[in-house]
Design a binder for these strands. Structure first.
Lengths: 179, 179
DNA sequence: TTGTATTCTTGACACTGTCAAGATGAGTGT
DNA sequence: ACACTCATCTTGACAGTGTCAAGAATACAA
């Protein structure tokens, strides 16, 4: 099940929680994994964190804010998963490219609900800055790996853009159809 | 905006609506297009069809049932869009394959919310029979078009499966990243 | 210690999906 | 024409939801 955020957060009962923000994101991930996105509920996350039903509002504004923050963490984990996969593999351009794709798909499988959520939230009008930044970091990893394979900076040439689109589309579509 | 279902349905005020089922699906599509999936509400669909809040239950069971039916209609329209695109193009195997992909992507763009909904609902435990059938019909179109390109029945050979997966993944991923 | 901000709770509101009960009309057989 | 049955739709109720305003509890700086 990978590294659920919940493992690193202790939920206690002080009035001032200390790190309620993290605790709520962790609770949100568990809720999402257990109940799916349809039955996701802010109040249930609050209950899970032993906190009143209106507490999340102060940290995240509304429900979309919490899911936005969770998505941002998801992209962070996606980057980590890809990099770990690449590190473990042979350091030739071809193998590095392939293993980045493997990492991408592996993340999608191990975090199905989160994966879907991320790409629902990414291109939203009110996406947060940290969400966009983390998503761009993931994108850069892909660009780098292609650059080392083809030997040119892919964003500089029209063909490079096509390469990226084709590859990302293939990997993303594959992951999406798998789950 | 393509052919919204709502155009073909007249909403009047008899007690027995006549074709409330269709009217509700049409209303659901409009609601989805206007408010997005987050704010989708059964009761709002009922209001739009000038019908009491509990009327949908009798036709669709619950909210998922209505969205399931809408998804089924979505796949029907997807097939139609692809076939129209293919018909308008040159009838050589290559061009037919390409134009089926164009139709696929065009549908995704013109029916963004519906497109997403369809692939959320397709592989669900309780998907309806008609939904599955319509989705399979769309799949068959793809298989046919590949068969005519490669000259072999793609489902019979392992390489054929890989061709299909690669192509669908590419087209689907491309469409998904576009919207 | 006192005062101010931050963090969280309480209570309320309108809204949602779903259920049970009943009203309404369509269709069928006589 | 009538009565009967069944599918269709309404009404009313319930628990649960997101969100807001007001206030309580705590932390922190002066």
């Amino acid at each position: 099940m990978g590294d659920l955020l919940a493992k690193n957060v202790d939920i206690d009962e002080r009035y001032h929680h200390g790190n309620l923000r993290l605790a709520l994101i962790a609770a949100a991930e568990l809720e999402l994994a257990e109940n799916g996105p349809e039955r996701f509920s802010l109040r249930a996350c609050a209950r899970r964190a032993n906190v009143s039903h209106a507490a999340p509002a102060h940290h995240f504004g509304d429900a979309a804010g919490l899911l936005d923050a969770l998505s941002a963490l998801g992209f962070e984990r996606l980057c980590k998963t890809i990099l770990v996969e690449m590190e473990a593999a042979e350091h030739t351009p071809e193998v590095q490219l392939a293993s980045s794709a493997v990492g991408y798909v592996r993340f999608a499988i191990e975090n199905q609900h989160l994966f879907k959520l991320m790409f629902v939230n990414e291109f939203r009008p009110n996406a947060s800055v940290s969400l966009i930044l983390n998503a761009e970091r993931a994108f850069e990893i892909l660009v780098d790996v292609i650059a080392k394979q083809t030997g040119v900076a892919p964003l500089k040439t029209p063909d490079g853009w096509i390469d990226i689109a084709a590859l990302w589309a293939a990997v993303h579509g594959y992951a999406h159809l798998l789950i």
